[in-house]
Simulated scan of single mutants.
Amino acid sequence: MTESRWDVLDWRRQVADLYRAVRAEQDVAEAHRRWVAGRERLLRTHPASPVPVGERASYDGPRVAPYDEAFRFVVPVDRSVPPQRREARTATDGVVPLERVGRLELPGLGGLDVWWVAVYGGGIFVPLKDATSGRQTYGGGRYVLDTVKGADLGGTPDALVVDLNFAYPPSCAYDEAWACPLPGPGNTLTGAVPVGELSPA
Rank of each mutant, 00 (worst) to 15 (best):
M1R: 14
T2A: 14
E3I: 04
W6A: 10
D7W: 13
D10T: 14
D10H: 15
D10M: 13
W11A: 04
R12H: 11
R12Y: 12
R12P: 01
R13E: 02
Q14N: 06
V15R: 06
D17C: 12
Y19K: 04
Y19R: 06
R20A: 15
V28D: 14
A29Y: 01
H32A: 02
R33D: 13
R33P: 07
R34K: 13
W35Q: 07
W35T: 05
V36N: 07
V36S: 11
R39C: 00
E40D: 15
E40F: 01
L42W: 00
T45C: 06
H46A: 05
A48H: 10
S49H: 12
S49C: 07
P50A: 09
P50M: 10
P50V: 06
E55M: 15
E55W: 14
R56N: 00
R56T: 05
A57C: 02
S58Q: 14
Y59V: 11
G61Y: 03
G61A: 03
R63M: 07
A65I: 07
P66R: 10
D68R: 11
E69M: 01
A70D: 11
A70P: 03
F71M: 05
F73L: 04
V74M: 02
P76V: 12
S80L: 09
V81C: 06
P82S: 09
R85C: 01
R85D: 00
R86M: 10
E87Y: 09
T90P: 02
T90I: 11
T92S: 14
D93E: 13
G94E: 14
V96R: 05
R100L: 08
R103E: 06
R103V: 12
E105F: 09
L106N: 05
P107V: 15
G108N: 03
L109K: 13
G110S: 07
G111T: 15
W115D: 03
W115I: 04
W115T: 05
W116C: 00
W116V: 03
V117Y: 01
A118K: 12
V119N: 06
V119Y: 01
Y120M: 09
G122Y: 15
G123D: 02
G123M: 03
I124Y: 10
I124A: 11
F125T: 04
V126T: 11
V126H: 03
L128E: 00
L128Q: 03
K129R: 15
K129G: 15
T132L: 00
T132W: 01
G134P: 07
R135D: 02
Q136Y: 10
T137V: 12
Y138G: 00
R142Q: 04
L145H: 09
T147K: 08
K149D: 13
L153P: 00
G155M: 11
G155Y: 06
T156R: 13
L160D: 04
V161Q: 06
V161L: 01
D163F: 07
L164C: 06
Y168W: 11
P169S: 10
P169E: 03
S171M: 08
C172K: 02
D175K: 06
C180G: 03
G184I: 01
G186N: 09
G186T: 14
T190K: 12
A192E: 12
V193S: 01
P194E: 02
V195N: 05
G196D: 00
L198T: 08
S199A: 15
